[in-house]
């Protein structure tokens, strides 16, 4: 498991108040983890802070699963 995945999982579990062990790469933020619209925005903001990056809002909100979020973040980190 990548470090990014572990950190994404931790942030997601804390924010959405779900059991960290239940979060997998295929978990969908809205359907499986119950993220509401404000929580989705909050997740993006928290990822930005956690990884010290800036994310394009629309692109970030289009990400549906935890695994895709990890890829999205890794991609930004690789360009830093």
């Amino acid at each position: 498991m990548s470090d990014t995945f572990e950190r994404v999982k931790k942030v997601t579990a804390e924010l959405l108040k779900v059991d960290e062990s239940k979060i997998t790469e295929s978990s969908r933020f809205v359907e499986d983890l119950g993220a509401e619209s404000v929580q989705s925005i909050e997740l993006v903001a928290t990822f930005e802070e956690e990884f010290g990056i800036e994310m394009d809002e629309n692109e970030a909100l289009a990400v549906k699963t935890v695994g895709d979020a990890v890829k999205f973040i890794d991609n930004i980190l690789s360009k830093k």
Binding site: I41, E42, V44, A45, T46, E48, E49, E57
Partner: peptide, 11 residues
């Protein structure tokens, strides 16, 4: 206000 959202809200 959630602190983590301050920057986003401003944006």
């Amino acid at each position: 206000i959630k602190r983590v959202l301050l920057k986003t809200n401003k944006k």
